[in-house]
Every structure is written in structure tokens, then in C-alpha cells.
């Protein structure tokens, strides 16, 4: 039965103000039941206050084989980090 149901990716918000984070996946015939299943599988120990589900097939991902060209060029661009400014002492919380 479960193999006939599509797979849904589950994102849980741990508490108000935080991001939804990927928690795992569930099988379910539709989104409404996927939310119920996600609730029963991933929030049994008070892990969350909000749930998103999205069909796994609706996620577009980068190609792992193209990871080199996708991500490695950023490696030596250290000047993209904002670490070259001298901050006056008066500026706090940066």
C-alpha cells in the first residue's frame, strides 16, 4: 500500500521564529494526510510547532555530478566574506 503512495518531504519548524528544517519523508496519498503522517512520525516528542510537506518529485535539485562546477569556484573568493572592514568600537551586534 505504502509503495503506491507518493513520497513527501517533511519540513518542521521547531519553534516560532525559526526556519522550517528538513526532518525526513513520509508516504501519503495526498498532502493533507502527509501532514497528519508527518505529525505522527516526526513531532511525537514536541519537535515542532509547524509542518510543511512537499511532494518529493516537486523538488528540483542540483546535480551531484556537477558539484565541482557548481560550488568549487566559490572556494577561493574569500573577498566575498565581509571580513575586511574595520568596525568602530561603537558598533555592536555585528
Amino acid at each position: 500500500m505504502s509503495k503506491d503512495w507518493p513520497l513527501w518531504e517533511v519540513f518542521i519548524r521547531a519553534k516560532g521564529g525559526l526556519d522550517h528544517k528538513h526532518a525526513g519523508s513520509v508516504h501519503a496519498p495526498d498532502g493533507e494526510m502527509a501532514v497528519n503522517h508527518a505529525r505522527d512520525v516526526y513531532t511525537r516528542r514536541m519537535e515542532g510547532v509547524s509542518i510543511w510537506v512537499v511532494k518529493s518529485t516537486d523538488i528540483v535539485s542540483s546535480d551531484p555530478d556537477a558539484a565541482g562546477q557548481m560550488f568549487e569556484p566559490a572556494k577561493d573568493k574569500i573577498y566575498r566574506h565581509p571580513t575586511f572592514y574595520e568596525l568602530p568600537d561603537e558598533v555592536k551586534h555585528m
Binding site: 500500500m1 505504502s2 503512495w5 513520509v26 508516504h27 501519503a28 503522517h37 505522527d40 512520525v41 511525537r44
Partner: peptide, 12 residues
Amino acid sequence: APTIEVDLSLAN
């Protein structure tokens, strides 16, 4: 239960 998800749901 018919699926692992339903299994947990019933146990809950």
C-alpha cells in the same frame, strides 16, 4: 498496520 506511517499513527 498497512504502512509504517499508519502504524505510528495508531500507536500514537
